[in-house]
Simulated assay, not measured.
Amino acid sequence: MSNKQALRELQQRLAQRMQAAREQSQAASWLAVEAAGAPLLLSLRQASEIFTPVPLKPVPYGQPWMLGVANLRGGLHTVVDLASFLGLRESESAARLDGGQTRLVSLNPELNVNCALLVDRLLGLRGDDQLQPESAASGGLRPRFAGERMRDADGRVWQVLDLEALARHPQFLRIVI
């Protein structure tokens, strides 16, 4: 009898949790990552899956920031060292794929680019309610994929990357030297 009661209680708790999850609005909008020490925000609508690094096949005559091609869930994806592409680190010192915290973040298939970005570290999820837009700083020209800057409650400034604009950027699409 106690097994039936325990099963009923478990089912009730699961049903309550599922209902609460349905009623709760999506709290997270951003995937927070780090590339060469730079805090970046990637939209959860534009990013897809997170993978641990896998062996890569090098591509001859590729840009230094283009690390190679990987098989991710049966699909071939170009792997780009995000920090090197953004000019945050030298290509020769590109992050090694065997690092403990490096991850591959694939772009959403709706962007029609089979690509994964190598990031140095995942820093978790962030919600819009945790971030405030940073006042526009006067600076040089910025590429279209560099969105607004956001500040969190700790005062850390995050750079938003528009992955759709990045996937269409001419320099990003020019993978051959």
Rank of each mutant, 00 (worst) to 15 (best):
V105W: 09
L41I: 05
T102M: 02
K57M: 08
L41N: 01
V119T: 08
L111T: 09
G139M: 05
S29D: 09
Y61M: 15
D129Y: 01
Q132V: 00
L44N: 00
N112Y: 13
G74S: 09
L97Y: 05
E34F: 00
Q101T: 12
A95W: 00
S84Q: 13
A27C: 06
S91R: 02
F51E: 15
E134I: 03
E148K: 08
G127D: 02
E34I: 11
G147W: 04
Y61E: 12
P60D: 02
G140H: 10
P58G: 04
V79A: 14
A35M: 08
A32M: 05
Q132E: 01
G75W: 02
L41W: 02
P58A: 01
F145N: 01
P53Y: 11
Y61W: 14
A36P: 14
L44Y: 10
E148Y: 07
G37R: 10
L123P: 00
E92S: 14
P58H: 04
A83W: 05
G87F: 14
L104Q: 10
L104P: 10
A15P: 04
L117N: 06
L131Q: 03
V119I: 13
G87S: 08
D98T: 13
S138V: 14
L42E: 05
Q11E: 01
A95M: 13
M18H: 11
V119S: 09
N108E: 14
L97E: 08
I50D: 14
P39Y: 02
G87Y: 13
L107S: 08
L107F: 11
A47C: 09
W65Y: 11
V59D: 05
E90I: 03
P39E: 03
V59A: 00
T78R: 04
L82F: 02
W30K: 06
A94E: 01
A116T: 05
A136K: 13
E110T: 09
M18Y: 13
V105K: 11
D98G: 07
A36T: 11
M18Q: 13
L10K: 07
E90M: 06
E23C: 01
L72N: 03
V79L: 15
A15Q: 14
L117M: 11
P39Q: 12
L56Y: 13
R89E: 04
G99V: 14
G99F: 12
N112K: 13
E49F: 02
R142C: 06
L82V: 05
L141H: 03
S48Y: 12
S138M: 14
P109N: 09
P39R: 08
G124M: 09
G147K: 07
L141T: 00
W30N: 04
R96E: 15
A21M: 01
D128Y: 01
